[in-house]
Amino acid sequence: MMGESMALPFWLDALIALLLLSGALVALLGSIGLARMPDVYMRLHGPTKASTLGVGATLLGSMIWFGVGHEGLSAQEVLITVFLFATAPVSAHMMARAALHRRVACREGTHGEPWDEMDRLPGYAESSSSSDNQR
């Protein structure tokens, strides 16, 4: 278990350790934001940005670890990174749209309602109902 870790040069070992630790800290920060923020729209901020960055840093450290002399860079890892960075904004967008569609309440003291702006967007009200029929 980790017997070959002495073979790595010191600066590479330190870089991997820094990436793993900072990634874990940033992901924890995102999860604290998810648990502690007062309403849905604020809670979306934590995991969708911070956790993605944290997991991305962890994956980058792991890619360096496996790329330098262990088993070689595995295709799965690159695929996971690409897929994660491609899909995280999409799922965040869809969750925000679901929250707006359900008109989830904001916290007290919010100026205006978020869905007021959404109703004013050109084509949103039409596109949400009529595109079902066209397909």
Partner: peptide, 25 residues
């Protein structure tokens, strides 16, 4: 849904760290 999505993303990181720990991909 947001909690479940974040749980998925963090589980990926845990599995990757476990892969480093076991030194196998």
């Amino acid at each position: 849904i947001l909690g479940l999505d974040t749980l998925n993303v963090n589980a990926i990181a845990v599995i990757v760290l476990g892969g480093i720990y076991m030194d196998s991909s």
